[in-house]
Amino acid sequence: MDPDLKIAAFNNIPNQEYALFGSVLEAHLETLLHRLKGLCGQLPGNAEPFQDHYLIYSTKSPNIIPPVHVRAVRSIMSTFMPWRFQYYGSEISEASRMVTQRQIIDACCSVRLPKFLEDGLGFNMDYEYILKGFTFAKGRVRISVGRMMKTAHEVNMQVEAAEALSGSYLVEVATVVFGGSATNEENPEKEILQVAELLKPIVDLKRLDVKR
């Protein structure tokens, strides 16, 4: 589980996530991990393996336009971890900015989330995937390097990772600012860009552009 994950209560001002995305070819994964280990130090929680199952749901009703997408996430490695509910708002940063900024709601749930979303709220599952990799934390910045896998369902209803979607590992560098506004001392955008600079040229991190 993400060591740096900060779980916020629902408040009026949503938390903001600042993030950059990229990918690294499998052949150079070791190089990247080595660099990340060097950058982030040997603190516990670094280079921690994870294997998360993502389920993406959207609203069933055609009346709600655009449809609301939410994600249900759980760890496959540890069955003691609760389900996590994630909601990402649309990108609000201007095109000239270097970093993706968007609303984020990330909360742990005590209920079995898929059942609650489908039966209780009327969501439909769109797609699912498994992200398998390693997480790092540098300061308040979380870096995850993971491979996106398609899911395979076994007879006993356990979900397992099947084939990989691509030959590359997804790299995500993100930090969350609570309450939406950064104080004067924090400059989340700068922190993200600094980390991105340190990972060059192994990974070319850029902002999320859904249009692409």
């Binding site: 995305f21 990229g22 990918s23 690294v24 070819l25 052949a27 150079h28 190089t31 990247l32 993406i56 769109d126 797609y127 995937y129 996106m148 979607l165 691509s166 030959g167 590359s168 997804l170 040229p201 192994i202 990974v203 070319d204 850029k206 999320l208 859904v210 692409r212």
Partner: peptide, 18 residues
């Protein structure tokens, strides 16, 4: 190259749109 732009885009598309 240690990274592939096409792969990045494919992965991001998969993540955001499935």
């Amino acid at each position: 190259l240690t990274h592939d732009v096409n792969d990045t885009n494919a992965l991001l598309l998969a993540m955001t749109t499935g």
